[in-house]
Design a protein around this nucleic acid. Structure first.
Lengths: 181, 181
DNA sequence: TGCTAACCGGGGCCACCGTTCCGTATCGTC
DNA sequence: GACGATACGGAACGGTGGCCCCGGTTAGCA
């Protein structure tokens, strides 16, 4: 949108990159709740420097998750063309589940309002509707239901160190979404 | 445990009861995170008075949830004698789900360490083991899985006002817990 | 009715965290 | 090499929330 930004000074650009990298790691480890001072310390800068580059903590978070959510949207749209709507839907759920199990901020990212999440919402709605039309998913489930379920799954997965738990719970959740026998 | 407590002065007892009632309502509405000042205001007393009766906010919370968790344990133990282990297990899950959907502090209550929750844990473990032995529930699920899943679900479910959502999500989870077809 | 002890209210302290300000250091250029 | 603009860092601010203490009041008992 604004490709012709004024060039940053060398140290500024370097610090901006370090802040983004530190924020990426810190948010992934501890979620949005991580203190901003921790991010600054991890980047080797002061809190003031973080605010020079990002107006608020939320803006920094947005900058961190934008790429990830965009990838999710892309993946969802790719699955929308698959021949088997049910398989495509559950494949995407597995992808989302792996993402959420690996990074603690995925749950927070899905709660941030904005066009990014709206896109994700819409892309998943397509997948869900096709899977439901094919009879692979219970008809009464909504996209909001799905988001809520996955946000809880992510919360649950990060409450323990049991590495198999996320996989077990994802299986439970996925199978529960299928129509009753 | 200590039935013969020294008699409280009339006004002290009245205030204690009002604080407990206010805390019960406030915790149910907003979870443990509700400010203690709000509870005090709701009870019509000052924050200092709350601390005269309960040493910490957690102690107050304990006092509020003890009766509820005890009821849950009793219910679980009653279900342990039922002839159909699978039906008993899922009936208890429905009971727990209703509790968690109605009161926002259920999730927090299940996270408090202590003998009360340990009892609940043990009682549910019996239900789960019997249901698994009867082939009504997937064998790989643990009690911790169940607790974690329900705690997170309660947290996430309260983020929306859709009254049917809790029921839908509970159905999904319950069906997902059944062995694969 | 008057004394004593317990109790009440709320102002205040401390810790935490997001945010801002300002003196200083660094960069880029002439 | 020096100067102006820019960026840096960390100390300070403001708000929030748990927790405690002081001065006044009230209940209980003689």
């Amino acid at each position: 949108m604004a490709p012709a930004e004024q060039p940053l000074r060398a140290d500024a650009r370097r610090n901006r990159d370090r802040i983004l990298a530190a924020a990426r790691d810190a948010f992934a480890e501890s979620g949005f709740a991580v203190p901003l001072d921790d991010i600054a310390a991890r980047a080797g800068v002061g809190p003031g420097t973080v605010y020079r580059h990002f107006p608020t903590k939320e803006a920094l978070f947005q900058a961190v998750i934008t790429a990830r959510v965009t990838d999710l949207v892309t993946t969802a749209r790719q699955h929308a063309d698959a021949p088997d709507p049910g398989a495509a839907f559950f494949a995407f759920l597995a992808h989302l589940g792996a993402e959420g199990a690996a990074k603690r901020d995925t749950s927070d990212a899905m709660s941030v309002p904005g066009p990014l999440i709206a896109d994700l919402h819409a892309a998943v709605a397509v997948l869900l509707a096709r899977a439901q039309a094919a009879g692979a998913v219970r008809a009464e489930i909504t996209v909001d239901d799905l988001f809520t379920l996955f946000k809880s799954l992510f919360l649950a997965a990060h409450e323990s160190t049991d590495p198999g738990r996320a996989a077990r719970l994802l299986t439970v959740l996925s199978d529960g979404l299928r129509p009753p026998r």
